[in-house]
Nucleic acid binder design. Structure first.
Lengths: 166, 166
DNA sequence: CAGATTGGGTTCCAAAAAAGAACTTGTCAA
DNA sequence: TTGACAAGTTCTTTTTTGGAACCCAATCTG
């Protein structure tokens, strides 16, 4: 499978990755959530090659995740801001961040903490069920074809092997 | 910045991406959550080049996200299974998936639905605050240096520009 | 018992993407 | 008239992928 075909896959993860799934895009978005908005700032903070940055900003803008708005005319200068669609990526970034805090921080602990303005506490994310409100975990979930599934779509069956299934 | 330096960045997102942030790894993990466990199955379902797959499985195993266990001797055959550390990535995958369901599904709707065994409903994830339980959104959060922050670490200040801030 | 098959890889070459540095463009200020 | 600034673009070199072929040990198959 080639990268440009990813957005046509019948899978919402693949489609999301067709927008944010390359080496740099999520780091660019991290900067956006820290309110970085200008080309030079992204470049300096990330140490990304300028043409790669230009390409990513263009693709994110075309995807409707960022929007380019002028902050001055003469000479015209533009900045990149998150749209609602971009802001909606926050839970995904937060989930990746929390995993890093938990599994990739050394004994020093996480480099950054996040405070919830609403309640005033330092917090992390808890992924809960939209229907019953309980915390979700992988073992309590099953997948099934949805309305957008292609005809004849079959989910893999749980393998009937005799593996060491302690 | 080169890719191998990513795991030393003082940022949990960068560190997480040093494990799952390349073109293929999250798709491999999607298969793992669908209980795909064998080399040939990954290859056939993903259409990934074999040596890239071998490399990704090795790296995920070294990172402690997957573990390689024999499912038969003579001839010895092994399969890859998610560890607890790997299962802990579920909220992140789910958040990316939900974003795709919401923004990347056409009018047909999402290709896959997820059912919560505990409550029996088709559900999506709601990211909530670990302290107050309210749903989290980007605008209600602020970042601050944590215990693992490098000395002299400064967060970017909100830019004091005169941008069109409707 | 020779030959094909299966699972899980490795090797090789060509194509695509990223790194790094230099060059461009429009505008203003000294 | 020269320099600086912001935001790119162009060029060359290195890394990563994609695609196909090959390897190998241990069964099946005839």
């Amino acid at each position: 499978m080639r990268w440009e075909e990813l957005d046509r896959e019948p899978c919402s993860l693949a489609r999301t990755l067709s927008v944010v799934g390359d080496r740099w895009t999520l780091l660019v978005l991290r900067e956006c959530f820290l309110r970085i908005r200008r080309f030079e700032e992204f470049e300096q903070r990330l140490g990304i090659a300028r043409h790669v940055l230009a390409d990513r900003l263009k693709k994110l803008t075309e995807a409707g995740v960022l929007e380019k708005t002028p902050y001055q005319e003469r000479p015209r200068r533009e900045e990149y801001r998150l749209t609602e669609k971009g802001l909606a990526l926050y839970p995904a970034l937060l989930a990746l961040l929390d995993w890093g805090d938990k599994f990739m921080s050394g004994k020093e602990g996480p480099p950054l903490l996040r405070r919830h303005k609403t309640c005033g506490h330092v917090v992390h994310a808890v992924t809960t069920c939209s229907e019953c409100g309980e915390a979700l975990d992988a073992r309590a979930m099953t997948a099934e074809p949805g309305p957008g599934a292609p005809a004849g779509f079959v989910l893999p069956q749980r393998p009937s092997n005799k593996a060491v299934d302690k």
